[in-house]
Design a protein around this nucleic acid. Structure first.
Lengths: 230, 230
DNA sequence: ATCATTGATTTTGTTTATAAAATTCCATCT
DNA sequence: AGATGGAATTTTATAAACAAAATCAATGAT
């Protein structure tokens, strides 16, 4: 139990812990409701408890972790209601990003958005779910950046992180890839036309559909992971 | 240097520190760029450095504080560009809240919004800036809550906190009270009609005007407070 | 006089220790 | 058997100690 720290590298120990823990939450390795034991985490990463505690505090401040005073931390469990509110927010944020992107993207940004989007059609044909998932993240990130608004970018990325544990299963649904691509296409077309309102609407619809697909899985996950408290 | 802790009360020491420090930032007692010395803060509140450090970490995670590794923390300094992006975000968020409020507020919420708004007309006549400022915060909070979306509420309140240091001086401008009231009136009227789009537009315009007033002051503040680093 | 160097001081980062709270588990009683 | 009370244990919160990095100041070289 010695060279574990090198796996993460760079920044202060606390930063590393924040990244390490939030990664595990976002990728679903740690599930909502799961207990985050300070001592175990400290041992796991071969550091003392202090940086772990600070990391948990920060993650709690951004909402990825829930902390009950004197009773430890758990991966944030969101109620069905709060989950819905996050998906709705996500739809609104994506709409804003798409609208601004339509109005503000540079010609370079438009060009590469279009090119990458067209390239991704191949992934749909192949049914390459993993690769499409990766592309999908890239696609949306382009939209967030294209809005040219740092604060909206921050809020959107943060909201996406908090939703990540609940949307993992979405691409398992049959026919989802083709449908997703078509929705992307509507967004891209509107952006290319410079039609902010249409782009916003298309983006909002896109998220709404994703949210319905994810919500189903969320319930099962939560109940399995966190039946024990409260 | 003993009974200081009682001034804040409730929650863990870290929570108290988070509140205490963020209060001082939001109210402008600590200005953007000002150094946050761990030892001084610890002494000032009569606690050890540990909770202070954790508090600074959390405040940094939410963006109120800026932390350079091994070089301490300062009250977040935002560039002119980032400030603009926050005001723009605020306008969009307020628009969403107003739109949702128009669609979702209960009759009770509508009633009290209307009543309080009408009551505030008196404060305008009297030119009671302090009191109107307080009412104004309440008014907007009602809108955020009326949207019935917990996540949007969180994002909006957080964005407002981060903007707070830069909008303090807005009510010093002559005639600002009456103008603000009229803008509120447009929002309230639209909400009462249940017209989400009109409410959203009115809210967006309201913030845009405020942002122009505040931006001017922001520059001066920043330059005075943080001329020394990088 | 200016700039670079280096040693002292200050400040931050991390670990270790102590204090306080909550949980567990067992004995006892009804 | 089930409930209740209360040590013993575990876990969390804060403090104090230690280590490392950065800042500052003074000296000496150009």
């Amino acid at each position: 139990m010695s060279g574990k720290r090198s796996l993460i590298r760079s920044g202060t120990t606390v930063d590393q812990m924040v990244r390490a823990i939030s990664d595990r939450i976002v990728t679903g390795f740690l599930r909502p409701g799961e207990k985050l034991d300070e001592t175990s985490l400290a041992a796991r990463f071969d550091v003392s408890r202090t940086p772990v505690r600070e990391a948990l505090g920060q993650l709690s401040a951004i909402g990825l972790v829930e902390r009950r005073p004197n009773r430890g931390a758990i991966v944030a469990v969101v109620t069905q209601e709060h989950l819905a509110s996050m998906f709705e927010s996500m739809a609104e944020l994506e709409a804003i990003c798409a609208r601004f992107s339509a109005e503000r993207m540079t010609s370079g940004e438009r060009r590469s958005l279009e090119i990458e989007h067209q390239a991704s059609a191949r992934l749909v044909q192949l049914g390459a779910e993993e690769d499409y998932e990766y592309f999908n993240t890239e696609f949306h990130t382009r939209l967030y950046r294209g809005a040219h608004n740092a604060h909206i970018y921050e809020m959107t990325v943060m909201t996406r992180s908090r939703l990540a544990p609940f949307r993992r299963a979405q691409f398992m649904l049959p026919g989802r890839l083709a449908k997703s691509w078509q929705e992307h296409d509507a967004i891209v077309t509107a952006i290319m036309r410079g039609d902010g309102n249409a782009a916003g609407k298309a983006a909002k619809d896109h998220v709404s559909i994703v949210s319905e697909a994810s919500a189903v899985f969320a319930v099962g996950d939560q109940i399995r992971a966190a039946p024990q408290h409260q």
